[in-house]
């Protein structure tokens, strides 16, 4: 996952794409007027290639990441894992603040700043998430969301090597976030690349460990795991961009001309919306 931070060339190209995208931002129409069909229309022209990368990621997960996460959970008690998680997240706070500001979300920026100060000072350098206990919500705003707020459409769905599900816009956003990442800036200024690798590895294992059972369930119950993850990613991103005020699909009334509640199949005709 965040192991992809290892791949500097990938990040460089992502950054270039980011700049190109920003330049065309005003020409892109954010409106999704086909909302009725949106519930099953997916923008995945590169599906063939994406499925290959997805399979490779899945294999890496099976042989490396998932076992590592299992060991992590088995060896470290809950409180220690919380400390690690909080510490890593707190160091990303300057990015959340910046992205809130870029989105013109003053309340969000105020919250993020409050979280950062609270957790850094009262939370002993970020190891305790005091802010969440005090009721300040953690909204992880990234540059992909910022681009969306600026009107950039999501573009085609992409599965990135090691990073997983994304799309053209979010991949570009990830490149920008990486360039602005305070830890990275500090590490490169102090010859601390080792620190970057460590954080990337620990962060990937940390996040994977939170969803061990869930992902197992998901994989077992899916007819098409790739399509399920693609759908989850899209819905999650839409909600994050709209700050949980996302549009809802339509649920038409099928009962007009059919026995919709009987277990048998209703007759052929469908009510037209």
């Amino acid at each position: 996952m965040k192991l992809a931070r290892l791949s500097r060339s990938l990040l460089r190209s992502a950054t270039v794409v980011a700049l190109a995208l920003t330049a065309t931002a005003c020409a892109t129409n954010p409106g999704d007027s086909g909302a009725k069909d949106a519930a099953y229309q997916v923008n995945d022209p590169l599906e063939g290639a994406n499925r290959v990368v997805f399979a490779v990621n899945d294999a890496v997960d099976t042989v490396a990441l998932r076992p590592a996460a299992e060991v992590y959970v088995a060896v470290l008690p809950d409180p220690v894992r919380d400390v690690i998680h909080n510490f890593i997240d707190n160091l990303m706070a300057p990015l959340y603040i910046a992205n809130n500001l870029l989105q013109g979300n003053v309340d969000g920026a105020t919250n993020a700043t409050g979280r950062f100060l609270t957790n850094t000072i009262l939370g002993a350098g970020g190891i305790a998430d005091v802010a969440s206990q005090a009721g300040i919500p953690n909204a992880q705003e990234d540059f992909g969301q910022t681009l969306a707020v600026w009107g950039v459409g999501e573009g085609p769905y992409l599965v990135l090597p090691l990073l997983g599900p994304s799309n053209l816009r979010d991949a570009a956003g990830y490149g920008v976030d990486t360039v602005g990442d305070p830890v990275r800036i500090w590490a490169y200024a102090h010859n601390g690349q080792g620190l970057m690798y460590t954080r990337a590895g620990v962060s990937a294992v940390d996040r994977r460990s939170e969803v061990l059972k869930s992902v197992d369930d998901l994989r077992r119950n899916s007819l098409d795991f790739y399509a399920t993850v693609r759908s989850l990613y899209h819905q999650q991103r839409e909600a994050a961009i709209a700050n949980n005020q996302g549009a809802q699909p339509e649920f038409p009334d099928f009962t007009n001309n059919s026995a919709g509640n009987s277990a048998g199949a209703p007759p052929a005709s469908t009510p037209k919306p």
């Binding site: 996952m1 965040k2 990073l163 599900p165 996040r207 989850l232 990613y233 819905q235 999650q236 994050a240």
Partner: peptide, 16 residues
Amino acid sequence: MLTRRHFVASVALLAV
């Protein structure tokens, strides 16, 4: 990306 906590939470859901 896959690593974001939103995604994490959503997957956690499926273990409703």
